[in-house]
């Protein structure tokens, strides 16, 4: 039985700066990394494998640069990796990515659980998991904050706005996790070294029968909202700073509400 973990390569959002004049995000030279919540999904996959046996297979779709991200997944404990590589897959919309991931998973072998993060770090739309479930005609359990598996049955607690919902389903099943499910490990150096030698399978979309048609979603603009802040720093010692702050808030009419 295989546990598939879908991971997305994104720019490191902490390092994205905004070009002041145009308010455009500057992406050149920003390092790529694995999505934050994807790491929780990987950790959960590895934890389940250690209990149930089988293999953890990291799956990702994107451009040539995917190698680094996939290596991070392998270092965190995935046994194998599948990459679907095509220039058009870089930043592709959810429906395209979901189709590529689903077809690659279907081709690879028996599915136990397909794990994902609740949403990607950059787009955070949460659409890929449910789309994969629909493509492969599988049940989906989203926003999972605790996961157990016994034989072929998974038991999950979902963290929803108004309640925690405990559900059960038979494998194969698609599960998306929230970040509080676990604390992802930081891979040891020996694991990082081993990662390079683990098996990797590369597909092109054509090999999977995935057609990348024109996009359905058009981004008309993508700009940082206007921010005009005073950026006054008080550094005269707590007593004086508090006085300065209170005076500033007073003069703006923000006190006495």
């Amino acid at each position: 039985m295989n546990i598939y973990v879908c991971v997305k390569q994104t720019v490191d959002l902490q390092q994205v700066r905004i070009r002041k004049e145009t308010r455009e995000p500057v992406l050149d030279g920003v390092p790529l990394t694995i999505g934050n919540i994807d790491k929780n999904a990987l950790e959960e996959g590895v934890r389940l494998r250690d209990k149930l046996g089988g293999k953890v297979i990291g799956v990702s779709a994107g451009s040539e640069e995917l190698n680094d991200t996939i290596k991070e997944a392998l270092a965190m404990g995935a046994d194998e990796a599948i990459m679907i590589i095509a220039p058009e897959l870089e930043g592709a919309e959810s429906s395209t990515v979901a189709m590529a991931l689903a077809k690659a998973i279907e081709k690879t072998g028996e599915i136990g659980i397909i794990l994902l993060g609740e949403g990607s770090s950059d787009n955070y739309s949460g659409q890929v998991g449910p789309r994969i479930a629909e493509i492969l005609d599988l049940p989906q359990i989203t926003y999972v904050s605790s996961l157990e598996a016994e034989g072929n049955t998974v038991k999950a607690v979902r963290n929803l706005e108004d309640c925690f919902e405990t559900v059960e389903a038979e494998m194969p099943v698609v599960v998306s996790v929230v970040s509080e499910i676990n604390e992802p490990r930081i891979p040891a150096v020996t694991q990082i070294l081993k990662a390079g030698r683990k098996p990797k399978q590369i597909y092109s979309p054509a090999e999977l029968g995935v057609e990348i048609a024109g996009s359905q979603i058009k981004t008309i603009s993508n700009l940082a909202p206007e921010q005009d802040r005073k950026r006054l720093l008080f550094q005269e010692g707590v007593g004086q700073d508090v006085k300065s702050l209170v005076a500033a808030l007073e003069s703006e009419g923000l006190l006495g509400r």
Binding site: I217, I220, L223, A224
Partner: peptide
């Protein structure tokens, strides 16, 4: 981008 930008998007 995690909230760094606001995108205007449409389904074609």
């Amino acid at each position: 981008f995690g909230g760094a930008t606001v995108a205007a998007q449409t389904i074609l």
